[in-house]
Amino acid sequence: MQEYTFRKFSQEEIIKGIKSNNSEIIRQFYQSEFKKIEQFILTNNGDREDAKDIYQEAFVVVWKNVRSDKFKPDNRTAINGYIYQIAKNKWLDRLRSSKSKVNMVNLENYEDLPDEDFLSKEDDHDWVVKEFQNLGDSCKEVLKRYYYLKQSMEEIATYFNWTTATARNNKYRCIQALKEKWKSKTSKEL
């Protein structure tokens, strides 16, 4: 089998890649930082599943903070230290907490959360994240290509063998499908 070709990206490239959702750069950054964090969690009473869980949560935080410019690097490898620190803090928080799982963002218990206004925006966001998984494969693919990979309607149409107008309508229909689930969620809560 051919050797795996890992190219180390510079911090600048990583930040640019995260901002533009460049799959290749995100993959390499994700895969290059995991081992250190896994090692830390495994030597601190965690298992591999904990490591994956904590690492992915930390990764999403870094992704968000880079995109919102909350993270500003002060040296050339700051982002590596940053993700390690977030993961470490998240794991220590979980260890410190006696009811460890309850304190984590628990999407399964979403519906039990109080329907307070100040929680609303964050909750709706989390709800969309979770509900995306329940959409059909084509909808997931269309939405991912448009919103995450920033592909144009023309590119999406070519991929699915659709016309551009069909791609545009299907994208809207998929959003509507998601909102239908939203309606049934809110009617359950009321």
């Binding site: 959702n21 995100i26 995991f34 992915q56 966001h125 969309v128 994240v129 919103y147 995450y148 959003i175």
Partner: peptide, 22 residues
């Protein structure tokens, strides 16, 4: 909210794939 949720969901889907590869 919908857009930010969809973006994060798509990222998480990718992270699962990257993890499986490792």
């Amino acid at each position: 909210t919908i857009i930010s949720g969809l973006e994060e969901a798509a990222l998480r889907e990718d992270l699962e794939i990257f993890h499986k590869e490792m």
